[in-house]
Simulated assay, not measured.
Amino acid sequence: MILPIVAYGDPVLRKMATAIEKSHPNLEELIDNMWETMYNAHGVGLAAPQIGQPIRLFIVDTTPFADDDELSKEEQKALKGFRKVFINAQIEEETGKEWAFNEGCLSIPDVREDVNRKDTINITYVDERFEKHTETYDGLLARVIQHEYDHIEGVLFTDKLSSLKRRLLKKRLANISKGNIKVEYRMRFPNLKKGR
């Protein structure tokens, strides 16, 4: 089932998400719905807070990035078919040089900005079968995971921009929270005026 994506301004996007157990109600169905919702919105990642659930769960599928001709063959290969569920994730370490990449977010439609992030991460998480993994990712893979991980920490990519950039975006972000934006997927707007 396609779920509405929560828009900028909703308090759920600012909550530190809580860890879940294997017995979390309807977890398999929730994950299936998240995949369907993400693909419907043409995203490469989606975190549970973005569908109104403040739990430590996010999904990533970087396959759409694999066709980028500017990437090396090695990077394209790493991105193609990378489809994972991350539950109770904890980034243990971020290393390497910071680099900028133009990011967007399904909760903040039509806003894209360059964000600096470290190149390499070491992350511990459990998958949908609650099997534990500790893995290292770099480049674009690391970036997508960092972006989604931020969601379960109550952080948005706009928080990483300069104060000047944030001031320049203030009106656009307010309009998004009010639903004054055209989107091609279902959304839930926190400050939508009733009767519109």
Rank of each mutant, 00 (worst) to 15 (best):
V44K: 13
V44N: 10
V44T: 15
V44C: 13
G45N: 11
G45Q: 01
L46D: 09
A48Q: 13
P49G: 01
Q50I: 02
Q50P: 03
Q50M: 01
I51G: 07
G52M: 03
G52W: 10
Q53R: 03
Q53N: 01
P54S: 15
I55K: 04
I55M: 01
R56E: 09
R56P: 06
L57F: 03
L57S: 11
L57N: 04
L57G: 09
F58N: 04
I59R: 14
I59N: 14
I59T: 12
I59V: 15
V60N: 09
V60F: 09
V60P: 02
V60W: 01
D61F: 09
T62D: 05
T62M: 00
T63K: 02
T63W: 12
T63E: 12
P64I: 08
A66K: 06
A66V: 14
A66D: 10
A66Q: 09
D67H: 10
D67C: 02
D68C: 01
D68M: 08
D69P: 13
D69E: 15
L71V: 02
L71W: 01
L71T: 00
S72C: 08
S72I: 00
S72W: 03
S72R: 01
K73G: 04
K73N: 08
K73A: 11
K73T: 10
Q76V: 02
Q76D: 00
K77A: 06
K77M: 02
A78W: 06
A78I: 13
L79Y: 08
L79H: 11
G81V: 11
R83F: 03
R83D: 09
K84V: 05
F86P: 14
F86E: 03
I87K: 00
I87S: 04
I87G: 14
N88I: 01
A89M: 02
Q90C: 12
I91F: 08
I91R: 05
I91E: 00
I91K: 05
E92H: 06
E92W: 06
E92C: 04
E93I: 06
E93T: 08
E94W: 10
E94L: 02
T95L: 09
G96W: 06
G96C: 02
E98S: 05
E98C: 05
F101L: 12
N102H: 14
N102R: 15
N102K: 15
N102Y: 11
E103G: 07
E103W: 09
E103Y: 03
G104E: 07
C105L: 06
C105A: 11
C105E: 10
S107M: 01
S107D: 07
S107N: 07
S107I: 00
S107C: 07
P109Q: 00
P109M: 11
P109N: 08
P109K: 11
P109Y: 04
D110W: 11
V111D: 08
R112C: 11
E113Q: 09
D114Q: 12
D114G: 14
D114V: 02
V115H: 14
N116S: 12
N116G: 09
N116T: 06
R117Q: 07
R117Y: 00
K118L: 08
K118M: 04
T120C: 01
I121E: 01
I121A: 04
I121G: 04
I121W: 07
N122Q: 15
N122I: 15
N122C: 09
T124L: 12
T124F: 11
T124I: 13
